[in-house]
Lab assay of single mutants.
Amino acid sequence: ETEYTFDDKREADRAAKEAQNNGLRVHVTKDGNRWKVRID
Rank of each mutant, 00 (worst) to 15 (best):
K30Q: 13
I39A: 03
D8V: 05
I39S: 02
G32F: 02
K17G: 06
D31S: 07
D40Y: 15
K9G: 04
D40K: 08
W35H: 01
A16G: 03
Y4C: 12
A12K: 00
R25S: 09
G23A: 03
E18D: 09
V28H: 00
N21T: 10
T29Q: 10
E1G: 14
R14N: 09
F6N: 01
F6P: 01
D8L: 07
T5H: 10
V26F: 04
Y4I: 09
E11W: 06
Q20W: 11
R10M: 12
V26W: 03
T2P: 06
D7S: 10
T2N: 09
T2W: 15
A19G: 03
A15C: 12
I39K: 02
D7Q: 08
D31Y: 06
G23D: 02
E3Q: 07
T29G: 05
R14K: 13
G32T: 02
K17A: 14
H27P: 00
K36V: 15
R34P: 00
F6R: 00
V26L: 02
V26E: 00
R14G: 04
L24D: 03
E1F: 15
F6G: 01
W35I: 02
D13T: 07
E11I: 05
N21Q: 13
D8F: 07
R25D: 05
A16E: 04
W35Q: 00
N21M: 14
E11D: 14
G23M: 03
K36W: 05
D13K: 06
R38M: 12
L24C: 07
T2H: 12
Y4N: 04
D13E: 12
R38K: 12
K9A: 06
R34M: 09
N22Q: 13
D31I: 11
Q20R: 14
G32A: 03
D31P: 00
N33L: 07
D31W: 06
I39R: 00
H27L: 10
L24P: 00
D13L: 15
V28D: 00
R38C: 07
E18W: 14
A19P: 01
R34A: 08
T2C: 15
K36M: 08
A12M: 02
R10H: 12
T29H: 10
I39V: 10
A12C: 04
E3P: 04
N33K: 07
K36E: 04
E18Q: 10
D7E: 11
H27A: 08
W35M: 00
K30F: 15
E11R: 05
K36S: 06
R38H: 13
R34Q: 13
V37G: 01
A15L: 14
D7V: 09
D7K: 09
H27N: 09
V26T: 05
G32H: 03
V26I: 04
G23N: 05
W35R: 00
A15M: 14
K9W: 15
H27R: 09
K17V: 10
V37F: 01
R25I: 11
K17W: 12
A12F: 02
K9P: 09
A16Q: 04
D7H: 10
T2G: 11
A12H: 00
Q20Y: 10
E11K: 07
Q20V: 12
E1S: 14
D40S: 14
A19V: 03
D8I: 05
D40L: 15
E3V: 14
H27I: 14
A15G: 01
V37C: 03
D8N: 14
D8W: 05
T5F: 15
A12V: 03
D13F: 15
D7T: 12
V26A: 14
K30S: 07
D13V: 11
V28I: 12
G32D: 05
N33I: 06
A12S: 02
K9V: 08
G32W: 00
K17R: 13
K17M: 13
T2L: 13
V37L: 08
E1Y: 15
Q20E: 12
L24Q: 07
G32S: 02
I39Q: 03
N33R: 06
R38Q: 11
E11N: 06
N21H: 09
E11T: 08
N21Y: 08
W35C: 00
R34D: 05
G23S: 03
V26P: 04
K36I: 15
K17H: 10
L24F: 15
N21A: 14
R25H: 11
K9F: 14
V26D: 00
R34K: 13
V28L: 08
K30I: 06
H27M: 11
E1D: 11
T29D: 05
K9I: 08
Y4V: 07
Q20S: 10
L24R: 06
V37K: 01
R10D: 15
K30C: 06
V37T: 01
T5R: 05
H27Y: 12
D31A: 07
R38T: 15
N21R: 13
A19C: 07
D40R: 09
D31R: 04
K36T: 10
Q20K: 10
A16K: 04
L24S: 06
E1N: 12
K36R: 11
D13H: 09
A16S: 05
I39L: 06
V28M: 08
Y4W: 14
V26N: 01
A19W: 13
K9Q: 08
D31K: 04
N22G: 06
R38G: 04
A16R: 04
W35Y: 05
A16P: 01
K36N: 06
D8T: 15
D13A: 08
A16V: 10
D40P: 05
G23P: 00
N33Q: 08
R14I: 10
R14W: 08
W35K: 00
V28R: 02
E3D: 05
K30M: 09
A16M: 07
A19Q: 04
W35N: 00
R25K: 11
